[in-house]
Write a protein that binds this DNA or RNA. Structure first.
Lengths: 336, 336
DNA sequence: CTGTTAGCGCTTTCAT
DNA sequence: ATGAAAGCGCTAACAG
């Protein structure tokens, strides 16, 4: 049978409450007591009962990952990072996929909150900037951390300088001799897409290349949208010599579009993506892309959230580093 | 403030226990009562408190997905299916990744069990057949469901006739004129790999093609192992005209290996995989493969598990259908 | 068929 | 700095 806090108290010759204080790192316990209790906890292999703790303490020890329809790979990485942080802190991760409409979002959130009463929430794009979700969380006074928010002011969470990353990527393209560089934007709801577009424009300006709106088409982050957008760019009278897609899935779509017309990447057209998901390495040619430390971002966001849960003024916005990876899908353009 | 069972009881003019009975679908309640209670539950928007329920009822309403290092896509699909079943049954999914060594497996399981006390567990390959894990679960009398177990006898869970699927896939290759067909095996710990290999051999026999062990090489389910295995097969004095890799990631590796030697798929060599993960459609040429209803399998396994949790003799082994998808990566062989 | 009474194991008062 | 007692909201065991 599992030992209870009472058993620990008895074995250590102290009251239940003292054991509780030690376990929760509360003040007002002498060091000597603390050590005595910890020794018994160790000896008895005592682990607090989650349900009892939640019931008495009015906390659930649960945090929810709220998401909409992110790329599977992205979600998986975030989730892994969060799991790590949760395990280290004796917290429990609950997955909270929500629907697309306003009503479904609210309903789905309600179900999760009524059932699990999470102590906090981590938001990933595009929900990071969703007014319906944010309003719900604020109305319910739930702590939340944001990953890659569009408006980071006053928020806690994690972000990366995506604009700088894109500038660096674009600079690499320019250095290889490209002047006509196309861009496939991601869905506007993703804050990140604006930054990526911003990086694209800044890089052009810096390189003294005039912005040509024909070279910028809208995508939706999906492989299929990448094919379509790629075809649109390749159909231009003067097609680009390189295409920067706002994520890897769309870049893979561009490669397919190119292959289907008999073009060879990168000989005839250079392609690059963003995220460094597995497909970037598995596709042929391997994609030039930007690596985000996605799993770290999940872990760090969770740590900020837990800090905030423990103290209303703790936690902040953490920044992580990117890495630009030039691989096989880019090379100097062919001169005609 | 959230309403409690006491509020419902008062408003319905019955005892708490009656409400409890209604909520838990227990017998011994008149239909009239049941309806009266349900109406109040609806009106008060009553939702039981999970912690209190767990504490009093000695159940956690948690099931754990125990996994080792499956393909990310596979895991994601299983997880989605399980989430669906959990939500429908007011259960909570906890993710339980475990380490590789015997000791780590046991330690990691212990942590999860001490913390969450899951009412049941779903096992996916290769853990479905892991003696350490199975022994632990049996010793702790925990209900568990298996997905694609090597030894389904007496187990509950879900499986697919993978041997038949491979026979069908191979028959398609043979019908297109292939006689020298290579095979890249998956890691032996995966029960499924033996079946896939069995299907390969049975298809050869049926087609009257002699088994040639040079055409069968060992892989590890990873993209990298696919490259290596692909190279080994393509290096043969008489290389195969088609290669069946035991999963999509390895098939993608074969395509890369072929591309790097300047071969064109499927003109010079046909390639097929298994699983129909996203990469199968995103790669060029799109992979011929076998679709498993992975998400359904997660859902169905969870449903069997919940049945077993509710009644010690309920639940069983469910079978799901496969689908062979011929896409771009296969065509008749070139005649020399 | 329905209700009453005791906990489940912990944390929170509030004493000391 | 420590402890005793009173619940948290629910279900199990027993009575009726």
């Amino acid at each position: 049978m599992r030992s209870r806090i009472e058993d620990v108290a008895a074995a250590a010759g102290v009251s239940m409450k003292t054991v509780s204080r030690v376990l929760n790192n509360e003040p007002n316990v002498r060091d000597e007591m603390r050590q005595r209790v910890m020794a018994v906890v160790e000896k008895l292999q005592y682990r607090p009962n989650l349900s009892a703790r939640s019931l008495a303490g009015q906390r659930s020890y649960v945090i929810a990952l709220v998401y909409n329809n992110p790329s599977r790979n992205y979600l998986m990485e975030i989730q892994n990072g969060m799991l790590e942080a949760c395990r280290d802190n004796h917290y429990n991760l609950v997955l909270a996929p929500v629907g697309a409409s306003r009503q479904r979002k609210v309903d789905d959130l309600k179900v999760v909150f009524e059932h699990f009463a999470p102590d906090g929430v981590v938001l990933i794009p595009p929900l990071t900037d969703d007014p319906v979700v944010l309003e719900f969380l604020e109305a319910n006074h739930v702590a939340f951390a944001c990953i890659a928010p569009k408006h980071p002011d006053g928020r806690i969470g994690v972000m990366m300088d995506e604009t700088a990353a894109v500038r660096e990527l674009m600079a690499g393209l320019v250095a290889r001799g490209h002047r006509r560089i196309g861009h496939i934007k991601g869905p506007p709801a993703h804050g990140a897409c604006q930054w990526r577009f911003k990086g694209y424009r800044e890089a052009l300006r810096k390189a003294g290349i005039e912005y040509d709106e024909d070279l910028v088409v809208q995508g939706a982050f999906s492989f299929e949208s990448g094919i379509e957008a790629g075809n649109r760019l390749l159909d231009l009278k003067r097609p680009p010599t390189a295409i920067f897609a706002a994520n890897d899935d769309m870049a893979a779509g561009v490669i397919r579009a190119a292959c289907e017309r008999g073009l060879v990447v990168p000989r005839d057209i250079s392609v690059c993506g963003f995220d460094d998901t597995p497909i970037a390495r598995h596709i042929y040619p391997a994609l030039t892309t930007v690596r985000q430390p996605t799993s770290d971002m999940g872990r760090l966001a969770t740590m900020q959230l837990l800090a905030r849960i423990r103290a209303a003024d703790a936690g902040g916005m953490v920044h992580v580093e990117h890495e630009v990876l030039f691989r096989e899908s880019t090379q100097p353009p062919v001169r005609h």
